[in-house]
Simulated assay, not measured.
Amino acid sequence: MAQTKIKKECGKCGGSGFLSHYRAISAGTCFPCNGKGYILTTQSAINQKEKRKQQKEEKAALMRQWSEKKMNTFLNEFAEDQDFLNKMKGMNPEGNGYQLAFNLMQVFEAQGKFEYTEPKPF
């Protein structure tokens, strides 16, 4: 049984059918929707796309957790005192504050002075 087609606004052009920054290529016609401003899809395809998006977000969250554990292991292994540990975490006020420590960890890994043995979560 054929699934019912659903008209969905094109995510690339936002429904305009035109991409001004590509006007030199096919007069800016949006390729995904072929200039119509919408695409025809099925509920099944929408569900699959949402599922893939959720899986990607879950994988990214697991990777962030793994990376944070790795960084904390590194900092705890090489920090001689809590003051040093706090300085390393706070060196970069933007972002998560681990940039300097991350760079140092990469140098130690390359020199064979640090190895994190817990496998990646995927």
Rank of each mutant, 00 (worst) to 15 (best):
F78H: 06
F108S: 01
G15R: 08
P119F: 10
E77L: 11
L75Q: 07
A45S: 13
Q99K: 11
E94S: 11
K51A: 13
S20L: 08
I25N: 08
Q55M: 14
I46S: 06
G28F: 03
S44C: 02
N47K: 13
G37L: 09
Q106P: 03
M88H: 04
E50A: 14
E68I: 09
N76V: 01
A101F: 05
K56V: 10
L40D: 11
N86K: 14
G28R: 00
K59W: 11
F74I: 06
K70D: 01
D83Y: 11
E9R: 10
F31K: 15
L62I: 02
T4H: 05
C30L: 03
M71Y: 01
M91V: 04
M71V: 06
Q111I: 02
T29N: 05
S67K: 15
C33M: 00
G17M: 02
E80M: 05
F31S: 14
E57M: 14
N47M: 10
Q55H: 09
F108A: 04
G28L: 02
F114H: 07
I25M: 06
K5R: 08
L19K: 07
R52Y: 12
L100T: 10
P121A: 08
L104T: 07
A24D: 15
T4C: 01
C13K: 03
K7W: 03
N72P: 00
K36L: 11
G97P: 00
E109M: 08
S67Y: 13
G17N: 04
R23K: 14
R23N: 11
K53S: 15
C10A: 03
E80W: 10
F108K: 00
E80L: 13
L100I: 08
K51I: 10
H21G: 00
E80I: 11
F102T: 12
L85Q: 07
M105N: 03
C13P: 03
F74R: 06
A60S: 13
E118D: 12
G37T: 00
S67N: 14
K8P: 01
N34E: 14
G90T: 09
S44M: 11
T73L: 06
E68R: 14
K51N: 10
F108Y: 13
Q111L: 14
G15V: 06
S26R: 15
F84L: 13
C10K: 04
N96M: 04
Y22T: 08
S16Y: 02
T117Q: 14
A79G: 15
E57W: 05
G17H: 00
Q99E: 11
F78S: 07
G95Q: 04
F122Q: 10
R64D: 14
I39S: 04
A45N: 08
F122D: 11
Q82L: 11
K120S: 14
G11V: 06
K56Y: 13
A61G: 00
H21L: 01
T117F: 08
K8L: 12
E58F: 07
A110F: 08
L40W: 12
F108T: 00
M105R: 08
N92V: 07
H21C: 03
S16L: 10
E109C: 04
T117I: 13
L104E: 07
N47C: 04
F74Y: 11
G37E: 02
A45Y: 02
E109I: 09
N47V: 09
K56H: 13
R23C: 09
F78K: 00
F122I: 12
K56P: 01
Q48L: 13
A101L: 02
T73H: 15
N72D: 14
A79P: 02
R52F: 07
N47H: 09
P121R: 09
T4Y: 01
